[in-house]
Design a protein around this nucleic acid. Structure first.
Lengths: 336, 336
DNA sequence: TTGAAAGCGCTAACAC
DNA sequence: GTGTTAGCGCTTTCAA
């Protein structure tokens, strides 16, 4: 096992000052006379001193840890938002002295894990990413007066006052639809999700808005299915047969891959015969032969805003937070 | 801010016992008389008591945190190993009372972040995943006597005695090659990486072994390129022109996507005209039209073994660890 | 089986 | 500016 690291007392003794002065040198350097400060710092470097986290946490009642429930991307889909978001979250948190603590739920009680971490004061705050329909996390944490920031709007409860950051899905699909319309398409179809998924409805509304803005009809051009490749393929087959669209805007890259699959089966070339646009700008969109044009959510920017909001929430006194809505961009590739 | 959570003293007072008895009820329940134990537990439940982490960490000198440096998947590639691995690592660690702490390096000094966490006693151990050529982490941590487990073999230093878990890449490519040979191919080409990448050489050796086992030549059938889609595409073009292979085994799904791209450009159908097998079983392999046959590393199993090794390393006294090598499987899809 | 005392390493509050 | 005192909440002695 490693040798016991030096403590504040070790530094103090060697520098010929009190422990408190060493503490001040680290946390309130402006309180020290320059020469004292320099002497203490020299010893800190010499000994390789770094304050013991547990002791500091105990004393300050802060862990400088942010909890995040980590759910894996589903196999067989093109969804892997977490990767980009998480890395930027980790990097940005570090700039402000925070580390990210990952946990998973016990499958049984989804709130249990949050509650345990909270009650054991293991984390200072949470980043909540699973704000799907009926997700009880936000309400629970609000009720527990636990600091948190959500990646995702409080769709179900517009009166919620917690901090959140989200991507403007409607703006993204409007961007995608406009892009296709600019290229001369007029029959642009939509493949999205169940009606009760707020995110899906939001994205769908962008398509509707863009179509209507040019006086184009949407009737019969929309489909609602599960978020799987197979569903995307089937939806495309039905729409092609019944509505003869020349382009598809999809709620996800997963669905878009289904469309690409159907086109490939029929010997059609995406981008030449039929245009296809996905949503997420997943790795799949980036490397699929021909390339899949896709709406790219600014996940790095989301992470930065989340950390900003966290800092506001964790400041004393907590500063008010308004929701932050970020606009995605469109990554144009071969498919449309 | 949340109300101050109950402490050991609160529970003790309410249960009419000393603080120590409450502590024992939690950590050494067998020491208590059954009726006392029950009474204490009732109060614990009633008050929703959970031991303060910082205090416990300070006293026990353990954080119950495992550090992992998180690097994002490269854009434009099909590599996203971390997702599956990380989730299982988080879940398995939780079973043994450990949480995963994520950090990123400061770009400047790659060891700095490790050193800081170590000296501030923020984590009990590390999981090291970046064991590429010349990665100094393992040597550094060994020298610092810091507990850690590596995902990846100590290629450069066979005498290293630290704990590690790895995937048998050669077995995976041999599996892939045998699969193709069984299907009647005889001219199976290899597209891999630079010679100085141990992982790539390992994977390549599986292909060589499988070919030689059937007395088939490998000369002129191998290519070494960067791990990008474009490189895979170019390598495939060159090999097709010069060696006329009927099948490709690739060191990564990224390279395999390059091959698929070339085939698509030439109007060839993967799996019918030319067979292609990738490595990683990424989401891309799973959803690309037609499907990409790919070697699937058992990342969940790796995570479980890593946690087992961690527990051995962190036990007192530390128990010896041997390396663990796990065999991948082959996911057969349309491409071959 | 239970309780009392001590102390992990640090920082807030105050005295000098 | 710097030092002294106290205590964060817990667990490890050791005594009863």
């Amino acid at each position: 096992m490693p040798v016991n690291p030096p403590t504040l007392a070790d530094v103090a003794e060697r520098a010929g000052v009190s422990r408190q002065t060493v503490s001040n040198a680290l946390n309130n350097p402006h309180l020290l006379r320059p020469e004292t400060l320099e002497r203490v710092r020299a010893v800190v470097d010499e000994l390789g001193y770094s304050p013991n986290r547990a002791a500091r946490n105990l004393r300050t009642r802060h862990s400088h840890l942010v909890g995040l429930r980590f759910t894996p991307a589903q196999e067989g889909t093109a969804n892997a938002l977490m990767d980009r978001f998480l890395h930027k979250l980790v990097a940005t948190s570090a700039l402000h002295g925070y580390h990210v603590l990952l946990f998973s739920d016990d499958d049984t009680e989804p709130l249990q894990a949050y509650d345990d971490l909270l009650r054991s004061t293991a984390v200072d705050a949470f980043v909540v990413t699973d704000t799907y329909l009926g997700a009880p996390q936000a309400a629970f944490l609000t009720q527990q007066r636990a600091p948190f920031v959500a990646f995702g709007r409080p769709w179900e409860d517009p009166s919620a006052t917690h901090a959140w950051v989200d991507v403007d899905g409607a703006a993204g699909t409007a961007l995608a639809t406009d892009h296709l319309l600019d290229r001369g398409h007029t029959r642009v179809a939509w493949i999205g999700w169940r009606k009760d998924l707020f995110i899906g409805e939001d994205r769908r509304s962008g398509w509707v808005r863009a179509m209507r803005a040019r006086g184009l009809p949407t009737t019969g051009l929309a489909s609602r299915v599960e978020d799987t490749v197979a569903s995307g393929r089937e939806a495309a087959a039905v729409l092609l047969a019944e509505a003869a669209p020349t382009a598809f805007v999809c709620a996800s890259d997963t669905l878009a891959m289904g469309v690409l699959q159907l086109l490939a089966e029929r010997g059609l070339v995406a981008g030449r015969d039929v245009a296809v646009v996905g949503f997420d700008d997943s790795q799949v969109a980036q490397v699929v032969p021909g390339g899949l044009t896709s709406v790219r959510p600014p996940l790095e920017q989301v992470a930065v805003e989340v950390v900003t909001a966290l800092r506001r929430v964790l400041s004393t006194p907590p500063r008010a937070n308004t929701g932050v809505l970020l606009s995605p961009t469109l990554e144009v590739r071969g498919s449309g």
